[in-house]
Simulated scan of single mutants.
Amino acid sequence: METTLFYARAACDTMMRKFAAADLPPKGHFYYHQGVFLSGVLKTWQLTGEQKYLDYAASWVHAVFDESGKVKQYKRADLDDIQAGILLYTLYDATGDKFYRRCIESVAAQVQDIPRCQCGGFWHTCGSSNQMWLDGLYMVCPFIAEYARRFDRPEWTDLVVNEIRLMREHTRDAKTGLWYHAWDESRKADWCNPETGLAPEFWGRSIGWVPVAIQDVLAQMDPDDERRAALELYVRDLLTSLLRYQSADGRWYQVVNKGDQPGNWFSFMLVSFCLFPVNLCKPEISDE
């Protein structure tokens, strides 16, 4: 009988046959597309012990960083260009090679360059001025949280907890409990509500990033940190709210609350639910 590990290996092996590590698209770009996939490759290595998976991820990192630890094609600081930094921690632990430590510091320097909204939250991209998107929680928060723990930078834990708090504060809909895809502090984006700055939809894919991001942050935080309870409640509240929109066959739509409308389709965001070990029997949370 096939197991989840069987499918993980099959997926990794298929991609490894199709692409040399250096050719993973977008080729040459230090980006979340490769980072998300290679995170899975490294988890498969951890579960199987097969060296080829570790070597493949390492080969990609060497293709996009120079030997000084700088990103070869670095042009600007966008959240999507931070996510793949989480690979570096595993590679550093596995090899002890100081090259990966230099790369970690290079990515950390990029975090410092990301523009901020007046409220203190990160812009999603330099071209999306004053905009916070749910996707950004996964793109930057796990890297920051792990950096904080490893290198004793408690102010970085403060930064990431505040980012999550701000995202919820500005995107959560009090009526449904769902989080809108994005928020424009300036109210100038052509997609936003000119009064609230909110995006028009609850997008399944973007909501799916939220529990995964917060889970990864919690894994790096001190077990005694009093802020953990609030983060867990954020996720419990969001997932409980999503249960109201589950289809009869157990799936969710990409536009979460519009499953009865033509053109909508099922989303794969359900995977995020399976990754977060919270007690959904206690959904109470204050809106304040």
Rank of each mutant, 00 (worst) to 15 (best):
D158K: 14
D184W: 07
E169V: 05
E163G: 00
H170G: 02
M167E: 05
R172I: 12
A189P: 02
A174L: 14
R168M: 10
R168T: 07
K188C: 09
W156I: 06
R153I: 05
A189I: 05
I164K: 04
M167Y: 10
H181D: 13
M167A: 10
V161L: 13
T176Y: 11
L178A: 03
Y180Q: 03
E185H: 10
W179S: 01
T171G: 01
E169D: 15
A182V: 06
L178F: 11
A174M: 11
A174N: 15
F151D: 10
D184E: 15
A182E: 08
P154N: 11
R172N: 11
K175G: 10
D152Q: 06
D184G: 03
E163I: 02
H181N: 13
L159A: 03
D173R: 06
E185P: 04
V160K: 00
W183M: 03
D184L: 01
F151P: 03
W156K: 09
D190W: 13
W179I: 05
H170L: 01
S186G: 09
R187G: 00
D152K: 11
L159I: 07
L166P: 02
A174C: 14
T176S: 14
R153W: 06
R168Q: 13
L166D: 05
R168C: 03
A174W: 14
M167N: 03
K175C: 12
D173I: 01
W191I: 11
A174I: 15
T171S: 05
I164C: 06
R172E: 14
D152M: 07
H181Y: 14
Y180V: 04
E163A: 00
W183F: 15
W179V: 04
L159R: 12
L159Y: 07
R187V: 06
M167I: 08
R165A: 05
W156G: 00
E169G: 07
R165G: 03
A189Y: 13
E155G: 07
D190P: 14
N162M: 11
E169I: 02
D158A: 06
R153C: 04
N162D: 14
R172T: 13
H170W: 06
F151Y: 15
M167V: 08
V160A: 00
D152E: 14
M167F: 08
W183Y: 15
I164F: 01
V160S: 03
N162F: 04
R165L: 03
R153G: 00
I164Y: 02
Y180K: 08
E185A: 01
F151M: 04
P154M: 09
I164A: 02
L178G: 00
V160Y: 04
D158N: 12
Y180M: 11
E185R: 06
I164D: 01
M167L: 10
L166T: 04
W156P: 00
W183A: 00
A189L: 12
T157D: 11
W179Q: 00
N162P: 03
P154L: 04
A182M: 10
R153N: 12
L178S: 05
G177Y: 13
Y180E: 02
W156H: 08
D158Y: 07
F151K: 10
A182H: 04
T157V: 07
R165M: 10
R187F: 08
L166M: 14
E169A: 09
V160N: 00
V160P: 00
R187T: 09
L166A: 04
L159S: 05
R172Q: 15
T176K: 05
G177I: 13
V161F: 06
D152P: 02
E155W: 07
L159D: 09
T176Q: 08
T157N: 08
A189M: 14
W183I: 03
